[in-house]
Design a protein around this nucleic acid. Structure first.
Lengths: 215, 215
DNA sequence: TAGATTGTTAATCGATTAACAATC
DNA sequence: TAGATTGTTAATCGATTAACAATC
C-alpha cells in the first residue's frame, strides 16, 4: 500500500472538517464538499479514500458518521495518544499546554528537564528530572516524544529515549538526528520555514514589480 | 524559473551546512560533501544549484565562500529580516525568544496582544497593544508576521495586517486562512504533524510485527 | 428513467535520480 | 595525460488531476 505523508495529513484534515460539518448538523457530504472544506480537488479526496478502501454510496455521497468511523480505522480511532515533552524551555513550555494537540486527541502526560528549577510535580502536567525519563517511558509504555531541548542535547536525549521504547519523535532542535530505522523522526524547523517564506515574499514582490525598500 | 518550496528549503540547509564546514576550516567542498551533510543525493545538490545558476569549478568542486555568496544572492544575503509576532500566549511567547530564528537571520522586533496584562514596553522585545499593530507595521515597514493567536482571532488579525502591509505570514492557528493573492501564507499545524507521526509509528509496528499494547 | 456521484483507471504533471559529455 | 567532478539532459519515479464506466 502506498503510504504517503501528505495523504495521511489530508486524511486528518478531512476528519477535522467532517467533525465540523457534523457539528453543524450535516449528515451527508459529497467529495466536493470535503474538497472545498480543506482546499483540495474532489479527485484527490476520492483518490485518498480509495487508497484505504474508504467507501461511500455511489450517487449518494458519504454518510458523515460512517466516514469518520472509516477514517478512524486508518488513523486510529478516537483513542487518546499519550506523548512526552523533553526540554521545558520556551518551546517545550508552550507545547505542554498547546491546545492544538487536544484537537487531535494527543495528550502530553509529562515533561522532562535537566534543570531542577524547571521541575515540578504539582502542576497539571508534571515536569520531571531528565534522569527519570527512561524509567517513565518504560513504565508508562510511552511511544511518542517531542524534543524541545537545545541542539547539543537532542541526539543524546533521543538515544536514551529510543532505547527506553520511544518509537516516534517530533524534533524541534534544528539538527539532523541519527536514529536507527525502528524510530520515525519528524522534524519541525521554524527557522527554515520562515526563511523559505521570506524568499517567496521577496520573489513575489519582484515579479509583481511593486518593489519596496525592505530596510 | 521553477520555484519550488522544497528546493528553497534545501538551499537554506546547504547554506547552514556550508557555514558549519567553513567554521571547521574547510575551504572547498564537493557536491558529495554537501549532500552528505544535509542528507540528499549529490545529483540533487547540483540540480538545485543549476536551477539558480550557482556554479563551481569542474573537477575542483566549490569554494565555500563563493558558494555561500551565490546562495545568498538567491535567498537574500546576510541581511537581517524583521518580523512581528501576534498573540503572546504560550506559543507566541516561545517564538519571541526562539533561538532558531537568529540562526536564519530573522529578528522578532515586536509582539502584539489584546490582553493588557501581557503587554510590556520594557522587555527586550516589546509586547504592544493589538490596536497599535497597523501603525507599527506601516511605520516600521514590516513585511513578515507570525500568527499565534487563538483560532477565532486569526482571520481578523490577518486582514488587518495585510491591509497595513504584511506580505508573508507564518500561521500557527489551525484554521484555513483566506488571504488575497498578494500575501504568502505558510501554515504550521503541530497537531496534524504529530497525528501523522503517530500513524507512521503505528503502521510501522504492524509491519514489523512486534505489536505492543498501546494502552 | 435520467441525472449525479462514486470509485478507479489513465493521463498529466512535477520532482528526483541517473547518466554522461564537458572540462579542469 | 588520466582521473575526477561539474553541469545538464534524459530516465525514472511518484503524486495529482482528469476522465469515465459503474451504479444508485
Amino acid at each position: 500500500m502506498k503510504v504517503n505523508k501528505q495523504c495521511i495529513t489530508r486524511l486528518a484534515r478531512y476528519r477535522n472538517a467532517l467533525y465540523r460539518l457534523k457539528s453543524l448538523g450535516f449528515v451527508r457530504v459529497f467529495s466536493d464538499n470535503i474538497a472545498d472544506a480543506v482546499g483540495v480537488t474532489s479527485s484527490q479526496v476520492r483518490k485518498d479514500f480509495s487508497i484505504f478502501g474508504i467507501t461511500g454510496q455511489k450517487r449518494g455521497g458519504y454518510k458523515i458518521a460512517d466516514l469518520i468511523a472509516q477514517i478512524g480505522s486508518v488513523l486510529g480511532r478516537d483513542q487518546m495518544h499519550r506523548a512526552i515533552v523533553v526540554g521545558v524551555g520556551n518551546i517545550g513550555n508552550a507545547l505542554i499546554s498547546y491546545p492544538g494537540f487536544l484537537k487531535e486527541n494527543i495528550k502530553i502526560v509529562a515533561a522532562f528537564d535537566i534543570d531542577p528549577s524547571r521541575q515540578s510535580q504539582k502542576s497539571d502536567i508534571p515536569v520531571l528530572p531528565l534522569d527519570k525519563i527512561s524509567s517513565y517511558i518504560k513504565e508508562e509504555k510511552i511511544k511518542i516524544a517531542i524534543i524541545a531541548t537545545p541542539d547539543i542535547a537532542a541526539q543524546q536525549v533521543l538515544d536514551i529515549m529510543v532505547s527506553a521504547g520511544i518509537r516516534g519523535v517530533l524534533n524541534f532542535a534544528p539538527i539532523r538526528l541519527k536514529a536507527d530505522s525502528k524510530v520515525v523522526v519528524s522534524n519541525v524547523n521554524l527557522g527554515l520555514e520562515l526563511e523559505t517564506l521570506i524568499y517567496f515574499v521577496k520573489i513575489f514582490k519582484e515579479e509583481e514589480g511593486y518593489e519596496e525598500d525592505n530596510a
